[in-house]
Amino acid sequence: MAVMSVDSTTAAWRAAGESGDAEAAAACLADTVEAISPLTAAFRFSGRDQVREMLIAAMEVFEDLRYHTEVGDERTRALFLTGRAGREQFEEAQLLRFDADGRIVELTLFGRPLPALTQVMGSIGPLLVRRQGRPGLARLIRVASAPLALFTRVGERRLVPLADPNRGRGSADG
């Protein structure tokens, strides 16, 4: 595997994300890469093959990815992007750590807001397990995550605005 500069790896990673090309994104990864999900602490995706599968599922769910900020150095970069999962807009932060060959060896993901994260969970999880040959578990994950997605979506639109510190204080409810 050829040595890449961190700048060229990062540029290739960004281009792959914005074009929805999971294979091009996987080409930026070290063989021993580890991806840390924003959705679960129960496991990590380990190795290029597992992370590639996660990227394929993500690229099926995400739309309109646009990177807007990048900070870091020759060992670590933080990238920030916006996108959409279904009808939910989201913002994601990606912490990338690089090996001596300029490949991504660790990918830690952070996302917001909560309704978008629950949409992603209900979409990516079933895709991943279906690709593993477990369609029953895929249906179960989709069904189990649907109420959580609904509650977070309704809460974000109806309840959270009631706690807005800029909301008027003279009303009967506050």
Rank of each mutant, 00 (worst) to 15 (best):
A30K: 00
V33D: 05
E34H: 07
A35F: 10
A35M: 09
I36H: 00
P38A: 02
P38E: 03
L39S: 02
T40G: 01
A41Q: 01
F43A: 15
F43T: 14
S46A: 07
R48M: 05
D49T: 10
Q50H: 13
V51K: 02
E53C: 04
L55I: 01
L55K: 01
M59R: 06
E60W: 05
V61H: 10
E63I: 05
E63D: 10
E63R: 11
D64Y: 02
Y67D: 04
Y67C: 02
V71N: 02
V71M: 03
G72H: 11
E74F: 10
R75H: 02
R77Q: 08
A78V: 08
F80P: 06
G86S: 15
R87K: 14
E88S: 06
E91G: 14
A93N: 05
Q94P: 01
Q94L: 03
L96G: 07
D99A: 00
A100C: 10
D101F: 01
G102K: 09
R103Q: 12
E106Y: 08
L107H: 14
L109R: 14
F110M: 14
G111D: 05
R112I: 13
P113F: 14
A116L: 07
G122F: 07
I124D: 09
G125S: 12
L127R: 15
L127C: 14
V129T: 03
V129C: 02
V129D: 01
Q132H: 07
Q132W: 07
R134Q: 04
P135M: 06
L137M: 05
A138L: 00
R139K: 08
R142S: 06
V143T: 09
A144S: 13
S145Q: 13
P147W: 10
L148A: 13
A149S: 13
V154S: 02
E156W: 10
